[in-house]
Structures are given as C-alpha cells and as structure tokens.
Design a binder for these strands. Structure first.
Lengths: 211, 211, 211, 211
DNA sequence: CATGAATGAGATTTCATTCAT
DNA sequence: AATGAATGAAATCTCATTCAT
C-alpha cells in the first residue's frame, strides 16, 4: 500500500509531465513551422503551450534540444508509417506499391503539415550554425525517406517498370512531387487535398505530362 | 565644357558609388543565401563587401530594404532572361520550346544559385513579419515565373502535347523539377550540372519515369 | 488556504516587481531631468536603477514608453495634490485661495523638481518626433494645470479681485512665476526655498512690483 | 593693378564665403530651434542651407562650434539692440524706460523667435555635456540680459518706483513675462503679437493683476 | 517542478566626422 | 573651397537563458 501510495503520485506526476511535454512539442511544432526556425521564440512557444519559459528549460536543455526533440519524435512517427505502408504493400504489383508509397507520403505531408514545413525549411535554409544537431536529424530523416523510395525505385527498374536512364533522379523527382504539393499548400494558404491528388501524380510520374 | 567639367567628377563619383553598391549586393546575396534570411547579419554582409556597416545604411534604409533591393535587381535579370528565351523559341515546335524554357530555368538556377536559394527560402519560410516587402517581391517573382510556364503549358494542351487532366498542376510540377535539382545541389553541396540534366528532365516530364 | 498559499508567493513576487518598477521610475526621472530628454540613455537609467538594460525592456516596450509611464505616474500625483488643495480652499476668501494654489504649485515644483524640469523641457523643446506620446501626456498635464488656474482666475474676475483686462494672460503669468522660480533653481543650481517665496510672489501677482 | 586683380577675386570669394556662412547660420537656427539641440542633425542643417555636410565643417570645427558660432552672432545682435534701446531711453521717466526695455525684449523675442527658443532650451535643458561652450555662451547671454534689467530695476527702487521687497526677484519676474509669451507662442503654435502685449504686461508688472 | 523577472551578449540602426576627389 | 560616400563609435532593442522563489 505504502509502495502503491508512493508510486501512484509518481506515475500521476509522470502523466502530468507527459501531458506538459506533448503540449510543448505541439506548440513548438506550430511556432517553428509558422514563424520559421530562426524567428520561433521560446516565449511564444511557452505561451502557446500554456506554460512558462522556465518549464521549457526543465524539459529541454536549450532551444536546439527542443527542436531536436520535436524532430526526433515526429521523424519516428513518419518513418514508422512509411515502413508499415511498404510492408503492407510488399506483395503488390509495382504500380500499386508505388501508389501506396505516394499515398502514404502525401497523407503524412498533409497530416503533419507543420512538421513537413520544418523539413522543407531545413532543406533549403542554412541552419547548421544555429541548430547543428537538429539539422543532422533532419538530413537523416530525409535520407531515410530517400533510401525507402530508392529501394522501391530500384525494384521498379529491375521489374522494367522504371526507365533506368533516370537513375538516382527518380527518387528525387518522386519526392519532389510531394514537395510541390506541400509548397502549393503553403503558398496558396489553402489546405489542399494532398491525398486526393495521388492518382494524378502517379500518372504523371509514370507516364509523364505528354499526351 | 562647363557641363562636362561638372558632370565628369560627378560621374566618376557615381561610378565609385555604383561599384560599392554592386559589392554590397553581391555580398548580401552570398550571405542571405548561405546563412538564411534571418541569420544574415549586417556586419557579415559589410565585411564581405569590404565596407563598414554604416555604408550599408548609406545605400539602404534598413536590412529589409537591402534584401528588397537585392531581390528586385536579381528578379529583373531573371525574368528578362526567361522572356528572351521564350521570344527566341516562339516559333519552335512545342517540345523544343519547352526544352528551351527548361534549359533557361536550369541555367538561371545554376548561374544564380544564391538568388535561387533565397527564392526557395521565401517560398517555404515565413518571413512576412521580418521582411514584408521583400516577401511581396518574391511572391511576385514566383508568380511571374508561373505565369510564363503556365502560358507554354496552355499552348501545349491546345496543341494536344500536354494531357489536359493535369490542369494547373503542370506548371507546378515543371518548376518542381527545377527546385528538385536546386535542392539536390544544396543538400549534397555539389555544384551539380543543372543544364546537363535538361534532356533527362524533359523526357521525364513529357513521358514519365515509366518504362 | 489554497488561495492564500497561491496568492502569497505571487504577491511576494509582485512586490519585488513593484520595487524594481519604482527603482526604474526614480532612476528615469533623475536621468531625464538631469541629462535632458534626448541625452537620457537607457544604459544610464539602468545603471542608476541598479538593474540591467534588459530589465527596462521587461517593464516598458521602449524608451518612449518608459518616459510616458514615468510622466503618467507623476502627473496623477501632481494633479491630485492640486485638486486637494483647491477643495480645502474652496470656501476661503479669494486671496487666501489663490495663496493656497500658489503654495501648492510651488511645493510641487520644489518637491518634484525633477518632474518639473521634464515638464519645462517638454514645453520648450521639440520632442514630438522622438517622444510623441510622452509629449501628448505632457501637454495634457500642462493643460490640466492651466484649466485649474483658469477657474480660480475667472472666479477672481467675477469677485472683482482680478482685473478683467488681463484676460487669458492671468493664468499664464501666474504659472510663469512658478516657472521663474524653477528655472532660477536650475540655473543657479541652488535648492531655493520655493514655498518660502509664496507671499512675495502673491503680492507681486496681485499688487505688482510698483511702489 | 596686379594687386587689385588679385584682391578682387579674393573679396568676391569672401563675399561668397559670407553668403554661404549666413545661409548656414540661418539654417542652423531653424533646425536647432525646431528639432531641439540634440535632435538637430548636421545633415538636416546642410540640406536646408543648400550646401553639403562637408561645407559645414569647412566653416565650423564641429557641431558644437556651429552652435556656438550661431549663438555668438545672435547674442551680439540682441544685446546691441537692448543697449541701444536703453541709451535712447536713458533720460525717460522710469515707467517709460521700463516700457521701452520691455518692448525691446518682446520685439527681440518675436523677431528672433528661433534664437529665443534655443535660449529657452538652454535654460531648462542640460546640455553641458554635449555643448559645453555653447552653454557657456548662453548663460553669459542670459546673464548679460539680467544685468541690464537689474540695473533698471535698481534705479526703479532708488526712484521709489519699485518695491524694494522684491529684491532680486524683480528682474527674474520681468524676464519671466517675456518667457511666458514666448512659450505661449510655441505651445499654441500661433505667432502671437508679442509687442502688442507690452502695455498689458507693463501694467501687470507694475500694478499687479489685482483689481 | 513550475514560474517569470532579471540578465547581458549580440544584433540593428544612427549620425557626427573625415577625406579623397 | 565644396562635395558626399565612407566610417565606426555609440545608442537602442531583442531574446535565449538563468535562478531565486
């Protein structure tokens, strides 16, 4: 009993801590995506999370650690989702497998737009000075995604479904389509239906825009 | 004579002033591209231009005006180049015209990588707070490019060279390929040969990656 | 109980905050009065208040807000004091009432010499560009004082104690006497006994300097 | 002849130089009065004078020397005018002499409002750090004026025209009336008719505001 | 642990002054 | 002697981080 009465407040505390942590991560994702990596201020993140700045520092050593933590958490979720999709699609014919992958990427990009925006920022901006470890995380994430797309493409080439001339451009162009939709959504400030474009994009990717 | 004797010292000074201005713009382009819009510090720009901080402020009211001035200058050059290409290609068959446009875009993206990087940053980052007027310039630039690509695509659809189902995605995807190369070059830190990829990209765009 | 245990630490912190705020206001009053509105530097104010520069900005948005906050606080105190005096003197004969008002003004001018110096600076200097809102506060303060003096003067005219020919010059000249003492004290750098001059000034005001 | 032909261009040059100098002084007077001693920028003065900043430095060692030079020039004119008035009024009865002095002061204050505004600023502001020598000039100017008023007042006391109780307050209060009009004109931004108030002010000074 | 006021390093911006033309 | 672009010291302001409560 004693043990329980001691352990329960502790687990309650843990749950509180976890809730706070999630609130911080969500707020951070919002602010980093909306304001940009450099303009995302700790005060703003704290305010949106409904905690004080000090609390941010109780959970993360500094600003960079907060971003790195956020990216780590999201990255795991994203890669897990892609891997699941690929496993489910393992035995499908190539075109269906590619379709599943594209649908998964688009669904992720739409469902985690904020995280995706951060990913895009990391790609084009130079944040190595300000966020060295977060940048590392991001390029690793991107690399993981490329590796997965790359495997599918290689299989496609082996199966004579993908022209070999494209070589390593194929994964880049495939992901580039997702990026295009994401940017369209940011620029036009509309919540475009990413997944609904799956077939148009797949047709474009495999058969081109030519008549 | 009087006029000349008056205008000559003035034009000499003007030439000096112009030299300084170009040095500032070049330095600013480097720093904004390499460090990112928010992390580009006036001190760094001044140092690279080989002038003092105060000199930046003799030429531009503030940091934002400097960026806006830079973007205005580069934007004009880029749009002029694209327009020239399109004029030269006006009477070509569609595929050649599209090839010319793509080659022009890739050449620009490679020749003005720094400016292109800034353009990409403006697309994905949220700089409206910090650089309102520069952002406006950038979205106008992007819009101008889209309009030019869009016209060619519409003609392609009329000529039955482009599948009409893609609709407004066609220009986005076309520019997306250029973006893909630009990002590859940034991420891999290699000066990839953009223009050399023209044909691979054109084939991909018109005929797809499918075998 | 819970409320108390929550409110107490908060009120303790509030008291600290309030202490800091008062230290800042006092330091600002000193520096603005001694150095002049334009030459009062934030660093100097911070140093005298015994805080860091950043702390000033935790309490006031910028330099102007600090001045405006200072003036607002002091203005309330000054007008309250004058109003009290007038209320106490409401039923006195005119000469005594005027004497009370003059004594109150002189006491205020002496007791809050620094604030008065700032008031004088605002009158003669052109600070509309640098301190627009503070200037507004100051002219409102001056206007409030004029209104109060004006009322007494009007009553004096009705009671045939003040020559009507002076018209609206009477309040100006009355306040001018106070200004004269304040300036004498500034120029001679002596802490002249303002209140001790009440009767000499009252005699002068009512009966003139003529024999 | 040779001598003449050499001296003439020189005197022409001198005249040019003199013209430029006057333009600078006039511009400086405007800017120092309108913007305040601290906010008066060399660039603004140069622009209003229609010369370049460099030219200011060809005529004056630095900003302070420019202000000092301006004040010296104006001070001489003002004191000369007052002295002339006093000489002309030397044999008048006391009241007329006082009236002449007051009229002269008011006329000066109105005719050289800008200079007067600078005088007022110097009285109440603390410019010893920024403009040490100019401040000296100003307090000397003020002192000279006080001395002149003081002499007349002393004579008034001897002639039993001025109550001796006022003592050294009399000159202060006399000048205070002029200051009152000047400030009214600044605050109300009206070009009040100073000289037209001479008689009202003289009556007030000698006989008071009492009925 | 949470809090949030205080800190101060570092950024932007201003402007008197210099000096090559 | 006039010019005005360049200079850089000094000011204002920002914001990540700390730490006493």
């Amino acid at each position: 009993m004693n043990v329980r009465s001691r352990s329960e407040p502790s687990s309650l505390r843990d749950r509180f801590r976890e809730t706070t942590l999630q609130a911080i991560l969500t707020a951070a994702e919002e602010v980093f995506a909306q304001e940009g990596l450099h303009a995302a201020h700790m005060g703003e993140i704290a305010a949106r999370a409904g905690v004080s700045v000090g609390t941010l520092y109780n959970h993360f050593k500094d600003r960079e650690a907060l971003l790195a933590g956020l990216l780590d958490a999201r990255r795991a979720a994203m890669l897990t989702r892609i891997d699941e999709t690929l496993r489910e699609a393992a035995s499908m014919p190539f075109r269906d497998k590619l379709r599943s992958l594209l649908a998964a990427l688009l669904t992720q990009a739409q469902g985690h737009q904020r995280f995706f925006q951060i990913l895009l920022q990391s790609e084009v901006g130079r944040y190595q000075h300000t966020f060295p470890s977060a940048c590392l995380t991001q390029s690793e994430t991107m690399h993981e995604i490329y590796v997965r797309i790359g495997k599918v493409m290689k299989q496609g080439v082996r199966d004579k479904q993908i022209r070999p001339e494209l070589g390593d451009l194929a994964p880049l162009l495939f992901l580039g389509m997702v990026r295009t939709l994401a940017i369209r959504s940011v620029v036009l400030k509309i919540d475009g239906d990413f997944a609904g474009e799956t077939d148009r994009l797949l047709d474009f990717f495999l058969d081109g825009a030519g008549a």
